[in-house]
Design a binder for these strands. Structure first.
Lengths: 201, 201, 201, 201
DNA sequence: TATGAATGAGCTTTCATTCAT
DNA sequence: CATGAATGAAAGCTCATTCAT
């Protein structure tokens, strides 16, 4: 029974992921309100009713999707020993590579931005998102400062706050301009590095 | 008949504004999809059916709301003779003071960002928004360069592109963080001016 | 005042005709339910509200349109001295030339047929239509019998009843088959005359 | 799963029939436009929304109702060995006994006639109806000719075209005159047989 | 566990009718 | 007489959610 229980738990986790993957894709394409439960169930390959075994309602799915989009902190502390490392680390914060369970697709993040301004639960989740992002930036910047990429005298807190805003802007920009790849994003960030406080160039 | 016609035109324009004001508020609070025609009509103080005398359908209202949020270019060319002037001009681009018929409320702009990625008409209007913003920034930066606030050797184009991203980020930030006022925004932008290419500080 | 009164009556009659003409056309194209009061008012070239000065409501317009479509009896008693005369007289009963104030356009008559089976007032008007048609046929047939075109021994009553059914069928056929002109209709009726009771051929 | 699938198919077919029966009755009483989806759903005994599991929209219901009213051809080739047989076969073409899945209720056929002149899809279905009727008449007449009921020299094509018109007229007549039973219809058709080309009387 | 039939509230939109001007 | 702004009651349709199987 215990073995079966554990097996069930594994299957249940897989089902939840299956549903959240489908939901994320639907939300990205149609928005939280535009995507119907049937869209999601068809996309996930199971029946509409079955979804309600894993999530209480649509709202719960939205929350779960928003929640797992939060940036992961574990791998962020990689060594930052050059400009390139820094830029790459920043880019990873928005291109989804730095996500936890799922890529933080920009178009979906925009949806979260919009939803957060009217859904208090999503707003709270967004705050967690923001905290994660700040922590991550702090880690990256301190690592960069430790290796001398950033000048010792730089105000890392202010720099972090500014960078957060820049990353938000990049998320918007990436979602809106279809063909925007990492190369173009790097150009924007390069400008940033050209005109500042870096110790070694 | 002519007098009546003119009177009607005036009243009609007032009604349209009345509807768009109500719709903007509803959209801001509930989103484009979440706000119902009844929400809008009640908020505007007229019957649901009556709205259809002024707008063909809900989509047309969305378009009109999005369209009138586009930044105005006319007053952007004020003289930029100091850092403060520049920062103020930039802030005006996002706090709605620089709008045309209506303030570009950040939360509403977020809605536009999200909607643009799936509604082609809104996407086109967003492009116009982006062009307006670019033009406006170009004007501001050239004015700043002319008066020596920005160094002659600065690459105004790249600077403009970067600033656009920063402004997008500020819009997101402003919409998400409730108590964020001009003072805090100025702090973020101050950082920008501290670390760059300015000729006179 | 009296002169003005009479003038007003003339204008009023003209307005009513103007409205009924427009309504007939709209009803023909969209059906009684499908045509809106706005369709009719636009087509008539006056305001929606103004129509209510001349007709109590839409129902009254329907009735008036149905009523004036009733075949006219006055000119039916023309001499029937040959087969051709007879066939032409019958054709006139359905092609609208025999109408009173307005042509009995087949597609509109179909609308009346359908409406009559559920609208008791239209049903009563249809009965009047049927009586008129019967009277007309009786007149035509008696005239034909008087001139020897139809045999004296023919049962004019039964023949009339049969012809009425044939005419209903022709109305349906004419409305449904787009290119159906008088020539084709004559062919159908010719068959009728080929195989019957005519005294002189 | 398979058993359930088959069961579902059976239930689904029953539901479709249930809906179409209810819709036919509603359409007959109120017309295609006059009958609302709520009328139909209440009459069918299920919820409004549920109907949309079986039909894409109201238009699809109209089509299905019109389509299944088309005369069936399979049983039309019964032997026609007497006048009575012929008359009965013709009557069966309009009284619904000769229909496929559902009786072709005259009042409903009138609705189709009227609708066909403005709804292109119904128009196409009506053409199929007309073809079916023609085929059926052709079969009946050839059978009658084979058994000598109709003279060998008769032009069966022209006769068929004429009969089609007569049948249309009878449909109109039947729908309009409430108490019209088979007996009266037979009288009208009897007249037809009295005055023509029959070989054996 | 899994299905999808079933519900009913709510959506956008249309339209006959009224009425202030 | 004449207008068309204004109303509100449906209309067709969608969809989150429930539940019998």
């Amino acid at each position: 029974m215990k073995g079966r229980g554990r097996h069930n738990a594994v299957v249940a986790a897989a089902r939840r992921k299956q549903i959240l993957d489908a939901a994320s894709e639907c939300f990205r394409r149609k928005g939280f309100r535009g995507a119907s439960m049937m869209d999601i169930s068809e996309s996930a390959g199971l029946s509409t009713g079955h979804i309600y075994h894993y999530f209480e309602n649509k709202e719960a799915i939205v929350e779960a999707v928003v929640d797992r989009g939060r940036p992961d902190l574990t791998d962020a502390a990689g060594a930052i020993s050059s400009h390139s490392d820094l830029i790459e680390a920043l880019l990873r914060s928005i291109d989804g590579k730095g996500g936890r369970d799922a890529p933080a697709v920009p178009a979906l993040v925009l949806e979260v931005f919009a939803e957060a301004s009217r859904n208090s639960l999503v707003a709270r989740l967004f705050e967690a998102y923001e905290r994660s992002l700040e922590k991550r930036l702090e880690g990256v910047l301190k690592s960069a400062q430790a290796s001398g990429v950033i000048d010792q005298s730089a105000d890392v807190d202010r720099l972090g706050r500014f960078l957060k805003v820049v990353l938000y802007g990049l998320i918007v920009h990436t979602a809106m301009v279809p063909g925007l790849g990492p190369a173009e994003l790097r150009h924007v960030l390069d400008f940033f590095s050209d005109n500042t406080f870096w110790s070694s160039r």
